[in-house]
């Protein structure tokens, strides 16, 4: 599969007074055509910043470093040309209604981007907008194009947002935390549409979320982020069974499903992720990891290789006679460990 977007040594710093504070340690990422890559992590883990840096949309007061490749062209992450971004990448944000300017009609907002970039004529853009809306299930597209955003229902707004993202035929679509959409079934519908349409068009999709279950359902590959770095990357189907990084295993344990019998307590991971100013010198998860040993505290694990099945964990990377090390076993009597 060809790579539509990739990042090498991508890091993000935030301005703090006169110095810069690192928020995302150097990460390497690859996104392939037709696949959905999920990036999962807690709030503050750096998922949104990483994806924004990938497409050159960092907010004021932050800066990126490293290299970004979009649709075959490589750029310095500090200066990704805006026009390039418009042609090759799109974002779909959390709340579709706030992603639309309240003053313009839907049709105008759908076509203005591609017309401004001279990707197609006004007439062609209008046709494409109509096609996309119908493909997304809005049969009354002609009327909807004339509406203002405040006249749309939540579901309609979501579809308009997706259509807007797909208008320029982007190679990369970043979907940011769709878990705040209005209804659960709307959310699932939206993700299904995005994956389908993305696959059809041969685009790569990045799905950012803190919901591991959602991501496993819709993504082919998953990257787990913790405290500003990618700690594991694997195929979604493999993840549940053979997760290697202790954090990933702990996350999987924390899932409470409706079918499970009620437990005495909801599993949690004790402790909290360190703030960027307090990142330890060694492995960033070591303070909370039940398997940490001297090497973990002293030496930071190398970043996860892009595209590969890898975990940034000394223990997980140890070659072991019996295959992958079993990190599920832990000290007895510990709250939150799995039953089986």
């Amino acid at each position: 599969m060809s790579v539509v977007a990739s990042a090498r040594n991508l890091s993000v710093d935030a301005a703090r007074g006169r110095t810069w504070m690192r928020l995302v340690d150097p990460v390497d990422l690859d996104v392939h055509a037709g696949e959905v890559l999920g990036i999962v992590g807690e709030s503050g883990a750096g998922k949104t910043l990483t994806t924004r840096a990938l497409v050159g949309l960092l907010p004021r007061g932050t800066r990126a470093a490293g290299e970004v490749t979009l649709a075959g062209r490589t750029f310095d992450a500090r200066a990704i040309p805006r026009q390039e971004l418009g042609r090759t990448a799109s974002v779909v944000l959390q709340n579709p209604l706030t992603g639309l300017s309240p003053l313009d009609r839907v049709g105008r907002q759908l076509t203005e981007g591609v017309v401004h970039l001279r990707l197609m004529s006004q007439a062609a853009a209008a046709r494409r907008a109509t096609e996309l809306l119908e493909r997304l299930g809005l049969a009354d597209s002609a009327r909807i194009l004339r509406l203002y955003p405040h006249q749309l229902s939540g579901g309609m707004a979501q579809r308009v947002a997706i259509a807007s993202a797909l208008m320029p035929g982007p190679r990369l679509v970043v979907v940011d935390e769709p878990t705040t959409a209005l209804d659960a079934n709307v959310r699932i519908e939206v993700l299904r549409l995005i994956s389908e349409l993305g696959r059809e068009a041969g685009s790569g999709v990045i799905l950012v979320s803190h919901d591991l279950a959602l991501v496993s359902r819709f993504c082919q590959r998953v990257a787990i982020m913790y405290a500003g770095r990618i700690v594991e990357q694997a195929a979604a189907s493999d993840l549940r069974a053979t997760a290697r990084h202790p954090y990933t295993r702990a996350l999987l344990n924390c899932e409470v499903s409706i079918q499970a019998r009620s437990r005495a307590s909801v599993p949690v991971i004790p402790g909290a992720p360190p703030a960027p100013l307090d990142w330890p010198a060694g492995c960033v998860y070591a303070p909370r990891c039940p398997h940490a040993w001297d090497d973990c505290v002293a030496r930071r694990p190398a970043p996860v290789a892009p595209g590969a099945r890898d975990a940034a964990c000394h223990l997980a990377r140890l070659p072991c006679r019996s295959g992958a090390p079993d990190v599920t076993a832990g000290p007895a009597g510990r709250e939150g460990m799995p039953d089986a």
């Binding site: 805006r82 971004l85 990448a89 799109s90 706030t98 981007g113 401004h116």
Partner: peptide, 14 residues
């Protein structure tokens, strides 16, 4: 500071 400005930036507007 609103989100639609980010969307506009992503569409390629200066």
């Amino acid at each position: 500071g609103q989100e639609f400005v980010t969307v506009l930036r992503s569409k390629g507007f200066r």
